[in-house]
């Protein structure tokens, strides 16, 4: 399982930390980070800049592309009842007018809704959608590191026209998120499985590191080497696939030529 959770406030994070049994990573970290078994959670603080910074910070800690990302939080809504939880299929940034559409590829039966990211607390709830202050910045940032299918938001209604935002406090946020933990667990599991699929698709050929450490390849040659080794693995799967015999090669160019010959010998000419 590998997923990054981005949460604005500690009361929102606590039910997740408890449910997934996460432990604090480093008390000197500029932002609180918790993790266990591939699940990482960062507490960003409120607003767009905080969300973007936290997302970037978490990526920098791992340097792994195509990880799953999930922004979890409470939010206002124009009409949904308090406690309702939804994935987000459209994020609009109020200030810029930009829209993002996180692709909904998870087969979970969890309903989805639109969200408007605003820069100030929303009290009018003009549209029948969610209102928050982080999702747009989080999504735009996380999509620099992962494909949109792997970057999702899950929001839970904390306030609406009948229940103003002023009544929301730490206890409310903790309780509301705790009550959605079953859905959240399913989303986390499915999203991290999707990420695993994407990451597995780019497994490096077994002999790559040995070749790179022995011979000096240009960047172009590294790409050629990667693909030739990959083709060998595909065309001659284990156990037939032995490590290529390249011991006699004096240079990277000779390695590539030898691999090319080895690949071409695998084809039965008609």
């Amino acid at each position: 399982m590998s997923i990054n959770l981005v949460v604005a406030l500690m009361p929102e994070a606590k039910p997740l930390i408890s449910h997934f049994d996460l432990a604090a990573v480093n008390t000197r970290s500029p932002l609180p980070v918790f993790q266990r078994d591939g699940i990482r959670l960062i507490v960003s603080g409120i607003g767009a800049a905080a969300a973007a910074a936290a997302t970037g910070y978490l990526f920098a800690q791992q340097q792994q592309r195509d990880l799953a990302w999930l922004n979890v939080g409470v939010a206002g809504h124009g009409c949904l009842a308090i406690g309702e939880g939804r994935l987000i299929h459209k994020i609009s940034e109020h200030n810029s007018g930009r829209n993002w559409f996180p692709p909904q590829t998870l087969k979970l039966g969890v309903a989805s809704d639109a969200l408007n990211s605003v820069s100030r607390i929303e009290r009018r709830y003009a549209q029948p959608q969610f209102y928050d202050m982080e999702a747009a910045a989080y999504y735009a940032t996380a999509c620099r590191f992962s494909s949109g299918e792997l970057v999702q938001c899950f929001k839970i209604v904390s306030d609406n026209p009948s229940h103003p935002v002023d009544a929301v406090n730490a206890d409310t946020a903790r309780t509301l998120i705790g009550a959605q933990m079953k859905s959240l667990d399913r989303v986390v599991t499915a999203l991290s499985a999707l990420s695993d699929t994407a990451i597995k698709a780019v497994t490096e050929p077994a002999a790559l590191d040995a070749c790179l450490s022995r011979w000096s390849f240009t960047v172009t040659q590294q790409n050629q080497l990667y693909r030739l080794l990959q083709r060998l693995e595909i065309l001659e799967p284990a156990p037939a696939n032995k490590a290529p015999d390249l011991g006699h090669c004096q240079s990277a160019t000779a390695v590539l030529a030898a691999l090319n010959r080895q690949v071409n010998q695998l084809f039965v000419q008609p």
Partner: peptide, 9 residues
């Protein structure tokens, strides 16, 4: 949008 994966989608 650029951040999409045809295979996943």
């Amino acid at each position: 949008p650029k951040a999409q994966n045809f295979r996943l989608q």
